[in-house]
Design a protein around this nucleic acid. Sequence first.
DNA 1: AATGAATGAGGGTTCATTCAT
DNA 2: AATGAATGAACCCTCATTCAT
Lengths: 213, 213, 213, 213
Amino acid sequence: MRTKNKEKMEQLFEKRQAEILDAAGIVFSKYGFAKTTIDRIASQAGLGKGTVYQYFKSKKELFLLVGRNGMDRLKDTVLVEIEKEADPIKQIEIAIKAYLLFFQENSKLAGIFMQEQGEFRRETQKRYFEHYYGHIDMMRKIFKKAVKKGLLKDVDVENLNNILISLLNGLVYMWQAEGMKYSLTDRIPMVLKVFFTGIVKDEKRRQKYEKAK
Amino acid sequence: MRTKNKEKMEQLFEKRQAEILDAAGIVFSKYGFAKTTIDRIASQAGLGKGTVYQYFKSKKELFLLVGRNGMDRLKDTVLVEIEKEADPIKQIEIAIKAYLLFFQENSKLAGIFMQEQGEFRRETQKRYFEHYYGHIDMMRKIFKKAVKKGLLKDVDVENLNNILISLLNGLVYMWQAEGMKYSLTDRIPMVLKVFFTGIVKDEKRRQKYEKAK
Amino acid sequence: MRTKNKEKMEQLFEKRQAEILDAAGIVFSKYGFAKTTIDRIASQAGLGKGTVYQYFKSKKELFLLVGRNGMDRLKDTVLVEIEKEADPIKQIEIAIKAYLLFFQENSKLAGIFMQEQGEFRRETQKRYFEHYYGHIDMMRKIFKKAVKKGLLKDVDVENLNNILISLLNGLVYMWQAEGMKYSLTDRIPMVLKVFFTGIVKDEKRRQKYEKAK
Amino acid sequence: MRTKNKEKMEQLFEKRQAEILDAAGIVFSKYGFAKTTIDRIASQAGLGKGTVYQYFKSKKELFLLVGRNGMDRLKDTVLVEIEKEADPIKQIEIAIKAYLLFFQENSKLAGIFMQEQGEFRRETQKRYFEHYYGHIDMMRKIFKKAVKKGLLKDVDVENLNNILISLLNGLVYMWQAEGMKYSLTDRIPMVLKVFFTGIVKDEKRRQKYEKAK
DNA sequence: AATGAATGAGGGTTCATTCAT
DNA sequence: AATGAATGAACCCTCATTCAT
């Protein structure tokens, strides 16, 4: 009986937490960190201001958790998709698709990640990238496998991974910055084409750029 | 006489403005927008707080102008370099190099651009990209020329341009976010290789991704 | 049957009340009024926060009752001791001893009385002294008796009483303020000597101060 | 010129500080620490809230400084009076008079000292008594001199000093607590009589209490 | 022109109190 | 009767901006 009650309480607690996190995501993404007030988050969640503080100890923590939460979901989403495939090249393709689709569907998060970098980079640098890691590391392994199998050119995987992550982030940031006026996922074929095959036509010229590792 | 005096005054005014802008750049990049106080900017510039307000109407304007200023310098730098070359592919190569070199040498600006996106995206969206435009448009023309000359694959230039800008921005952001622990310019060869020739080795597979426009 | 049940209930109620009062005494004396939270009192009492409010209507009332409670115990203690003696001078001696011993053994209360004066003096002035009264009045009567019997100099009893109470309170306050580093009861002989016989040796000089009533 | 200007500024600064300290003294003594708002202090001083914070870094600091300030004035006042006399017994008499007169004229301070003890004793214990020290030490020296000269009974000076300070504090506290309904200075003759000559008439009984040191 | 003292709007946070379970 | 989740009033403090000198 007691145990059951306790469980119920915990479930309620987590439900509330999630509700507030959701509300916070909406408000933060709409107004940005600085102009968001706890009052607004509370009323967005249909709660009193004090209640928010029962679940999160500060505005900053709440903001950071919205971000972390999104990160986790991003990683999970990508992971789930990747595991459906065995071929490394296909996996890269899928990861790119999943990544861009995720932000298309969770566009609020793009702005929040950007803010987090801008506002809290100095303090959360390490923590921030620890969370990226799951994702980055996943990609790194795929790249390694692909190189090993001779499917990819023999390049430095770290470097390559860095480039892909940068490209994807950059696409999302730009999309956000331009007001999400176009479909992010529509860009996927072109991204794959460029990333996989490059843009230069002339073979002689291509050779020239193949030297890099 | 009068006129001369007036000119002198104007020169002095602009010199002061530039000094404050410099000071602001240093302080904003160190503490971020929110934690920067006008007091600190003033004392960094060796001036009184009130004086800052003689030259700029608000903290926000000052911040935005630091950004705009950087943007202008970025555009000019890239432009100057590009004009030294006639070959479009070389121009692209040069633009990439100049872009990354610029941020390596003006690393403060990367953080400021990031903040600007995070804090003021909502309000400055248009103005912000108007300034990117100079730069973006420049690239667009080069891509067009290259496609026309048959040096590049026949792809949608808008889309392609978008991808390159995203890649470069993404690289700079990530470099910043990771604490500028490595050399940004060292990545150039690899960036060129990927962007120009792609990463996939197997010809059959490459074909598959060439379909996109 | 019913009555018995009711009595039991009342006993339980009073037991709870006393428990909470105890807990409150501990917490208030440790953290002071302002920094004490009802939550802490509740958990010190092993109860829920809401329960505290079933027994006391506010934090302030609770605090004041802790004080009043202590007062009552002080008065009772002194009274019990005094009644063992008939001689007024002895009674004064005993009262002084009992007073100081009480605070030595209930040192928490000294701090609480001090706070009460500081925080609530303005509002509780009358109520506060009504409770002192029992004690003060007791002393007054003894002084009167002693003067009447010619054991004490013929001085204004009100005034004298005031002085003794002040002296004792002052001793306790100072002892508290200095961190209770010494034994309060060790001071008793000296207090008696001063209060009963004064400190001036020279008889001529003594005469000079005897004029006051 | 510059120097003169600087001096003027400093004078202005100190004048403002003193004004705020005064205003704070009035408000704190009227409402107590907890119920005093910085806003009220500011408006009492005829200033804006922010200005108070230019001169004092927190409400607490301000409160503590009001106290310390009073302490210093008390010590100075007593010192000045004492130095007018050479005879130790007279000096004690004068100190008692000056002490009680000071609080009669600065009755606000009594409440503030009380609060300080109640609210901040835990944190300021040492600092608090360091400030009493000037005063206490002064008295100690007088007592020593008086004992040495054979004017006082040969008792432990530390202990005696403690008793006098306690008596005086106690008188002030009680006077405060009872609403300052009577004149504190009117009590002086009686205080001197008791402290100097004691209250017991009967010589045989007096002997009994003379044993203590 | 340069200054920095004065200002007060604004919001994060705490916690006594309430009330539905 | 006991509980503790929900509440919102209350207040400290910061700092961009103004303005008199």
